[in-house]
């Protein structure tokens, strides 16, 4: 596992920034997803979706590498020990932002 030299506060701030970027990208995808459900022939929206998908996937992979998995299966390999159980959960302070 990668080690950081940053202070705990610094790590938390970086996590917050990385999570916000991920939230912004995944929100764009959710919104385009709904738009495409009713406009499946919109080429520009499909292009936007694919453009954002690549950025999202990259951001998600690097977030998971640093801060643990986002999903319990199928999206990223498991580390030892199993880190899915680690805090913070989204409703906890420091987890939601």
């Amino acid at each position: 596992m990668k080690k950081f030299n940053a202070s705990p506060a610094g790590v938390a701030r970086n996590r917050e920034t990385a999570l916000l970027e991920l939230q912004q990208l995944s929100f764009s995808l959710v919104d385009l997803n709904l738009f495409l459900d009713t406009h499946p022939d919109n080429q520009q929206a499909v292009n936007d979706y694919n453009y954002l998908f690549e950025q999202y996937w990259e951001a998600k992979s690097s977030f998971e590498l640093m801060y643990g998995p986002m999903n319990n299966f199928g999206h990223c390999p498991a580390s030892y020990p199993w880190s899915w159980i680690n805090d913070p959960w989204p409703w906890e302070r420091g987890g939601a932002v």
């Binding site: 999570l19 409703w91 932002v97």
Partner: peptide, 13 residues
């Protein structure tokens, strides 16, 4: 369904 360990929008009340 697959759960994602994040909120859709940041919340810190």
């Amino acid at each position: 369904w697959i759960y994602e360990k994040k909120l859709q929008f940041p919340i810190d009340v």
